[in-house]
Simulated scan of single mutants.
Amino acid sequence: MLRCQILGHRFRFYGEGETMRWRCVRGCGAEGAKRYPSEADAQRYARAFDREDLEDLGRRAPLVGLFPLRLLRALRRRGRKSAGTRTT
């Protein structure tokens, strides 16, 4: 699928017993699985991997495209830290 070739796959992760499975939601057919020692491990890893990067857009912004967003976030953090140490 052209969209996956350009933008990359968009995997969703889920657990089935002791196996963690993933599948591209764009319908290109990319999928896989990995077996873990316990069902709890498979579920834990599936939950950890199954999140949208959009949730952390300002915190984990790529250096190139979203650099201004990362810079703005760093300046805000710095402003909050220095505001707490000022004496008037």
Rank of each mutant, 00 (worst) to 15 (best):
E16P: 01
G8L: 04
D50H: 15
L63S: 06
G79H: 09
L57C: 04
A74L: 13
M1S: 15
E16G: 01
C4P: 00
D56C: 08
L7G: 07
R3E: 07
F13A: 04
T87C: 05
K34I: 13
Y36D: 02
R3Q: 12
R51A: 08
T19I: 15
H9Q: 02
Q5K: 11
P37D: 15
M20I: 02
E16L: 05
T87E: 11
T88G: 10
H9V: 04
R26Q: 15
V64K: 00
R12A: 12
A33N: 08
M20S: 01
E55Y: 06
L72F: 08
E16Q: 08
R80I: 02
T19Y: 00
A30Q: 08
L63Q: 03
R51S: 06
A40L: 05
S38E: 03
L63T: 07
K34S: 12
R12F: 04
R35K: 15
G32R: 10
E18Y: 00
F13W: 05
T85M: 03
Q5E: 14
A40K: 11
Y45L: 06
G79R: 12
L54F: 00
G79M: 13
S82M: 15
G27W: 03
G32N: 09
A48S: 09
R86Q: 10
R78L: 15
G27N: 10
L57H: 11
Q43M: 06
R70S: 08
T19N: 12
L57M: 05
C28G: 11
E31N: 14
A33C: 10
E52V: 13
S82F: 02
R12C: 09
V25A: 09
R10W: 02
R86P: 00
R76Y: 08
A46G: 00
T19L: 09
G27H: 05
L66D: 11
Q43W: 03
R44A: 14
H9G: 00
F49E: 06
R78F: 14
A61T: 13
C28H: 04
F11G: 01
R12T: 14
A40F: 02
L69N: 00
R21T: 05
E16V: 11
R35M: 07
R86E: 07
A48D: 02
A61L: 09
A74D: 13
Q43I: 06
R80H: 09
S38Q: 05
E39S: 13
R23T: 14
R23K: 15
R44M: 07
L7Q: 12
D50P: 07
G17M: 03
L75D: 08
R60K: 15
C24P: 05
L71D: 00
Y45T: 06
W22H: 09
R70M: 01
R44D: 06
R10A: 12
